[in-house]
Structure formats: C-alpha cells, structure tokens
C-alpha cells in the first residue's frame, strides 16, 4: 500500500523530540543505535538524565570535538563519545546487571516491526543466509522498566511496521510500552493500541489506513 499523498507528519528530529519530552527528570536511559541516539539532543532544559551505554559507561556525554576522539571511549554503536563529570565505567556483567536487573528506567530502540501486543522485532529479518547479529537488544527488552520504540510508521515500500503480529523473528514478546512514529504516538495497553497524539495534518482514519492493527482512541 504505497503512500502517494504528500508527505505529512513529523521528521526524525521532531520524533526524537517527542520521545525526549516523555523522559522524566532523574531517569537512567539507554538509547539504541540510529534514530534513538537523536533523543538525547532534545531533553527539555531543567531535566537531568543519565545515559547508559551497554559497553560500560553510565554518564555518556556529547560527541567529542574534532581531534579529541579516544578510541577507548566509545558507545554501543562504536562511535567516539565523551563521559560527563560524575560518569563511571564498569565491566560487561555489571552493565547487564543494570539492564537485566531492571535498574535502567527507559530504553529507546528502533524497530523493524511491532505488534499490537507490544512484541518487538528489530534484530533479524529471518532471511536465509543473512548473518544474524543481536547485540544487547534481547537483554534490554527483557530487563529495562519501560521500552520506547522510535520508528517510521511504514517501510520504504509503504507497508505498515505496526501489525497484529510480527512476521520477523522476535526480539522480545509483549515488551514495548510506547511507539513514536512520524505519524503518531501510540501506547501499547492490555486493551490494544491507543493513539496518544497525532502528528499535524494526520487524521485518525489516515493513521488507521497506514497501520496493520486496530487502533483505539482514548
């Protein structure tokens, strides 16, 4: 179902800004690779958020200035970063104790598919021959208290990424709490998907047409 209408909705930065607005003061947050990384740039002033990167740092700071990169100070995406004053380093078992032991408050992840029950698929298309790679995604969804997904609402072909069921192999079952897309913000509840906010010019009907699962209004 290709989208032929003119492009409406939020851009990547606006999506990140929406997710950032929902991160409370004092949160410990893990950001996935890609679009989730944009979120840290939009946390409202006055809120202190501590970023965790699973390769062993609590208190991840901004990208270093040119020439000040340290190849031994990187994030989970293996990009050079900085550490804030008050940061700490730790080994992998401690890092995943924070994750799996539910000490991290919020994780923002990308998605290939999300189901109406909050199942997430974001590590493999399951195609034969593809080299599987999972990283820390399965541990994050199993342990972090709240999982936000940030993703385009539809694939490049226009197919819905939010459906009744995921067809790709799962990262976790019933793990997603909220979905931020270019068209809307959706809550995953025991009673199904609820529309929390629509992007400008997006109607409920338009959103429903571009979603592969039943949507509900609050």
């Amino acid at each position: 179902m290709p989208i032929t209408e003119k492009k409406i909705g939020w851009d990547r930065n606006q999506m990140a800004q929406k997710a950032a607005f929902d991160i409370p003061d004092g949160s410990y947050v893990n950001l996935g690779i890609g679009m989730p990384e944009l979120v840290s740039g939009f946390v409202p002033e006055g809120r202190e958020v501590i970023y965790h990167t699973e390769n062993g740092l609590l208190g991840m700071g901004q990208v270093p200035e040119n020439g000040k990169e340290d190849p031994e100070l990187i994030n989970a995406g293996k990009k050079c970063i900085t550490a804030i004053p008050g940061a700490c380093f730790f080994h992998h078992a401690d890092s995943f104790t924070m994750i799996r032991g539910s000490h991290i408050d919020i994780c923002v992840l990308g998605a290939m598919q999300v189901s109406q029950e909050g199942d997430l698929a974001n590590w493999s298309t399951g195609k034969p021959g593809a080299i599987p790679a999972v990283g820390g995604a399965m541990d994050l969804v199993a342990g972090v208290k709240t999982i936000f997904v940030i993703t385009q609402h539809n694939t490049k072909n226009g197919d819905p990424k939010i459906n009744e069921k995921c067809t790709y192999p799962l990262t976790g079952k019933g793990v997603v709490n909220r979905i931020y897309t270019n068209l809307a913000i959706l809550d995953v509840t025991d009673n199904g998907l609820f529309v929390r906010e629509l992007a400008p010019e997006v109607t409920f009907e338009y959103l429903q047409k571009n979603t592969g699962a039943k949507l509900n209004q609050y």
Partner: peptide, 11 residues
C-alpha cells in the same frame, strides 16, 4: 557461529 545475546554472553 553461536550467536548469544550480549548480556547472556557476559553472564
């Protein structure tokens, strides 16, 4: 290849 979730690998 034996693929293991990163936290499971660490543990």
């Amino acid at each position: 290849l034996e693929l293991v979730p990163q936290g499971t690998l660490a543990e």
